[in-house]
Simulated scan of single mutants.
Amino acid sequence: MARSNKERTEATRLALIEAARRLFVERGYAETATPDIVAEAGVTRGALYHHFEDKKALFRATLEREAEAVAGHIDKVSLPAGSPREALLLGASAYFDAMAAPGRTRLLLLEAPAVLGFEGAGAIDRENAAGTLKAGLAELLGPGAKAETLDALTDLLSAAFDRAAIAIEAGADREAYEGAIAGLLDGLVRA
Rank of each mutant, 00 (worst) to 15 (best):
E66A: 14
V77W: 07
V70R: 12
T149M: 09
L88W: 00
L116P: 15
L63W: 09
G103Q: 08
L58P: 10
H50K: 11
A121S: 08
A145I: 00
A87G: 02
A129G: 06
G136E: 03
E127R: 08
T62S: 04
G72R: 10
E86V: 06
G122S: 13
G42L: 03
M99C: 04
A138L: 10
A69G: 13
S83W: 05
P143F: 14
R85Q: 04
L108C: 08
A92K: 09
D125I: 15
F96N: 05
A123R: 15
E119L: 11
L108Y: 08
L58W: 11
E111A: 12
E53Y: 12
G131R: 07
T44N: 15
A101D: 00
L58H: 07
E111C: 08
A145V: 01
A69D: 10
G144P: 00
E64N: 06
K56C: 07
G144F: 00
D75R: 02
G136Y: 00
L116V: 09
L116M: 12
E127V: 04
P80W: 03
A138W: 06
V77N: 01
E53V: 13
E111D: 15
E64D: 13
G91D: 01
L90N: 07
G142M: 09
E111M: 09
A61P: 00
E148H: 10
H73G: 10
L88K: 00
L88P: 00
A94E: 04
A81W: 02
K55L: 14
T44C: 07
A98F: 08
G120F: 11
G42Q: 02
G122R: 12
I74R: 00
G142E: 01
A92T: 05
A129D: 07
E64C: 09
A61N: 07
R106H: 12
R60K: 07
G91L: 02
A130M: 14
L89S: 09
F52E: 11
E111V: 13
H73E: 13
N128K: 00
D75W: 03
E86F: 01
A147K: 14
A114H: 05
G103V: 11
A67I: 09
T44Q: 12
Y95F: 11
F96L: 10
E127M: 08
L110K: 10
R85V: 05
R85L: 08
R65A: 03
